[in-house]
Design a protein around this nucleic acid. Structure first.
Lengths: 232, 232
DNA sequence: ACATATTTGCTGAACACTCATTCAAAATAT
DNA sequence: ATATTTTGAATGAGTGTTCAGCAAATATGT
C-alpha cells in the first residue's frame, strides 16, 4: 500500500502551493491535480507497466500502484481498463505524429532534407525509448484481434506514408533513379519498424546503430542525395 | 461446449480407423493418437487461438475446444499453459529455421542466388500465413518481459543473421559496392520483419506485394547482381 | 472572518467473474 | 488385469468493476 499523511498533510500542502508555487502550473500533485493531469499520470503509469510486465500481465492494480494512487482510481478517471489502454495508445500515437510533424516543419523545403529529418526523428531520444518501444510492441501484439488497436496503430501511417511516398517520388525524379517508388517506400518504412522491433528485443542494438542502419539504406537508395553525414 | 457422442462413438471411431485407414499414419485421431501427435494437435490449436484471439485472450479452454478435446487435456500433455506456449513458439522457430535451411540448400552455391532464396522463402506460402504471422507477433509483444520468449525469438537470428551478413559481404566484394555491410544487413533483415508486421496488420498488403518490396530493396542494394526476376 | 453546506476527487473493501490447475472416475489400449 | 489416456466437475487464486463513505476544495450563508 502507499503511505500517505492523513490529518497534518493539509498544512504541508498549503505551504507548498502558496510559498513554492514555482514555475509552470498551478496544478501539480495531491488533490489539486486536475482531471487531465491525473489521466496523464495514469497513462504514464500504464506505459511503465506495459514496458515492465507486458500487455497480458498489466493489471489495474499495478497501474494504480505505479501512479501512487488507490485501486479504484482507474475506473474513476477512465471508465474501464479497455478505455485506459485505448487512451494510452491514442496518447502515444498523437505524440508520435506530433514528433514527425515538427521534424518536417524544421526541415526546410528541400525533399532530401525532409526525408532525412523524417528518418532521423524516428530514432529521436524522446520517441525511441525502450519503455515506449516496448509499449508499442505490446499493442502490436494485440492489434490483430482488436480493431480499435489496429486502427490506432495504422493511423500512424495514413498521412505519414503518403508523405514518405511523395518524397521518394520527388527524389526519384531529381536523381533519375530506377526503382519503383511504392515498393521502395514500403521497404523503407518497414525497415524502420523492424529496427524498432529489434531495439525493443535488445540484442545490444543501440539507437545510434539502428539509425545508422536506416541511413545506410538511404545511401544506397538515394546515392546522389545523401552522404552518411546528411543530405548534400 | 463441444458436442460429443458418449457410448456409441467408440464403434464409429473403430470403423474409421480400420476401414478408412487412409494414407499416411497409423495414428490419426481418437484415443489412438500418440503422445507426439496430441502435442502437435494442441500446438496447432494454440496457434489458431493466438491468431484469432491474441495472446492475452488465449485460454486453455479455447485451445482445448479448438482441438476438439476436453478441458484438462493440456495439463496432461504439457505441464502448464506456460509450457504449452513455449512449445508452440519453439515449434514455430524450428519450422522457420528448417524452411530457410532448405531454401539455402536448394539455392546452389552462388551467393546472389542464396540471398535471393533467403529473401523469397520468408514470403513463402507455408511460413507467411496470416495465422502464423499473428502468432509470431503475439509472442513478440510479450517477449520484452519474458526472457524465454526473447531467447526463442532471438534464436531465429543467431545463425540466420550471420549467414545474411556473410552473403552481403561477399556480394559487396563481387560488385564493388560502397556500403557498410553490417548496417546494410541489419536494415535488410529489419525490413523483412517490418513487412511481416504490416502483413499481419493487414492494410490490404499481400504476400506478393511485400515480397516485391523486399526485392526492390535488393535491387537498389545490389544492382549488378539482381533483376526484378531474380539473380543474374 | 467564521461556520456550514455542497461539490469533487479519491479510497479500499466487497463482489462477481474468469481461468489455470487438480484429481477422481471413466474410457480405452495393451 | 494393468497401464495409459481422457474427461469434466471442483478448486482457488487473481482481477476488473462497483460503490458507500471519507476528505479536500469550494461555495454559500451569517
Amino acid at each position: 500500500m502507499h503511505l500517505r499523511l492523513k490529518k497534518n498533510s493539509t498544512a504541508v500542502r498549503m505551504k507548498l502551493t502558496s510559498a513554492a508555487q514555482d514555475a509552470t502550473d498551478t496544478e501539480k500533485r495531491g488533490r489539486k491535480a486536475s482531471k487531465e493531469t491525473r489521466r496523464q499520470q495514469l497513462i504514464e503509469a500504464t506505459i511503465d507497466s506495459l514496458a515492465k510486465r507486458g500487455y497480458s500481465e498489466t493489471t489495474l492494480a499495478d497501474v494504480a500502484d505505479g501512479a501512487g494512487l488507490s485501486r479504484g482510481i482507474v475506473n474513476f478517471h477512465f471508465e474501464s481498463k479497455e478505455k485506459l489502454l485505448i487512451a494510452t495508445l491514442q496518447y502515444m500515437a498523437d505524440e508520435y505524429a506530433a514528433n514527425w510533424g515538427a521534424a518536417l516543419d524544421k526541415a526546410g523545403d528541400k525533399a532530401a532534407a525532409q526525408l532525412w529529418a523524417l528518418v532521423a526523428c524516428d530514432f529521436d531520444r524522446k520517441i525511441c525509448t525502450k519503455r515506449k518501444l516496448a509499449a508499442w510492441c505490446a499493442f502490436w501484439g494485440e492489434a490483430k484481434s482488436r480493431p480499435t488497436y489496429q486502427a490506432l496503430c495504422g493511423a500512424r501511417d495514413v498521412k505519414y506514408q503518403e508523405i514518405f511516398l511523395a518524397l521518394c517520388q520527388t527524389l526519384k525524379d531529381e536523381g533519375g533513379y530506377a526503382y519503383e517508388p511504392e515498393g521502395m517506400t514500403l521497404a523503407l518504412c518497414a525497415s524502420m519498424e523492424g529496427l524498432w522491433l529489434r531495439l525493443m528485443m535488445g540484442d545490444g542494438l543501440t539507437r545510434e546503430k539502428a539509425h545508422a542502419a536506416a541511413v545506410e539504406y538511404l545511401l544506397v537508395a538515394f546515392p546522389t542525395h545523401f552522404t552518411r553525414e546528411g543530405p548534400k
